[in-house]
Amino acid sequence: MSLKGPIVIIDDDVDDQDMIGAMLEELALVNPSRYFENGQAALDYLLTTPESPLLILCDINMPVMNGLELRDQIDGDPYLKKKSIPFIFLTTSDSPVLVRKAYNGTIQGYFKKCNSFQEGKGQLQLIVNYWKDCLHPNNCR
């Protein structure tokens, strides 16, 4: 994790990607954003990029590789595990079954997408501020 590293957004809904991107833009963060439509595309990026992302915001229900499968792939890969990238689910589903499944693995949060732009922006501000303020093994000196 790098405090100035990119924020990885994984969501198959382009409208949701655009909305999240607009929210992050209004927050005026120094962090660039990287967008992927499924877990496999994000995994390919994570395995090959020299970048150290600040965090991953991931939907659960996606084609090709869903968020739970991606989280399992990251947990099982020593290279990615060592990067210790905070993994946060940001999804429309608040199903108790999915919440429990999500927390059966290594995640750092599960958030339901907000219904309004302002609420969503506040939610993202909270998430980003937390991780920028949190001590982390990859940004301790």
Rank of each mutant, 00 (worst) to 15 (best):
V14A: 03
M23R: 01
N104C: 12
S2Y: 01
N38V: 02
F36W: 03
L70D: 02
D133Y: 12
C58P: 06
L29Y: 04
D75E: 11
P78Q: 12
L54H: 07
D15L: 09
N129G: 10
P53I: 05
N66R: 05
I9N: 01
L90H: 05
D44I: 05
V97R: 14
L98W: 08
C114M: 14
N104W: 04
S116P: 07
P53S: 11
S84F: 05
P32F: 03
I88F: 06
A28K: 11
E25R: 05
I7E: 02
I7W: 01
T49I: 12
V8I: 14
V14Y: 01
I60C: 07
Q17D: 00
D75Y: 09
V8A: 01
L68R: 01
D133T: 13
F117M: 12
G76C: 10
P86V: 12
L3T: 06
L27S: 04
G120H: 10
N66S: 04
Y103S: 08
P86Y: 07
D12R: 05
N61E: 06
N38R: 06
K101R: 14
A28V: 02
P53T: 09
L3M: 11
R71Q: 13
Q73E: 13
G105I: 07
D94F: 15
T49A: 09
L47H: 06
L29Q: 00
P137T: 06
Y110S: 08
I60D: 03
T49N: 11
Y110K: 10
D133F: 06
A22S: 10
G21W: 05
K112G: 13
E25F: 03
E25T: 10
M65C: 04
Y103N: 11
G5D: 02
L80Q: 04
L70I: 02
L29M: 02
S116A: 11
S116T: 15
I20E: 00
T92P: 10
I20S: 02
S84D: 14
I60G: 00
E37F: 04
K82D: 13
R141N: 12
N115W: 06
F111Y: 15
V128C: 05
G120F: 06
L68F: 09
K82N: 13
Q17R: 04
Y110A: 09
Q118D: 14
D59M: 11
I56N: 06
D44M: 07
D133K: 15
E37V: 07
T106K: 14
K83R: 15
C58K: 04
C140D: 13
L135A: 15
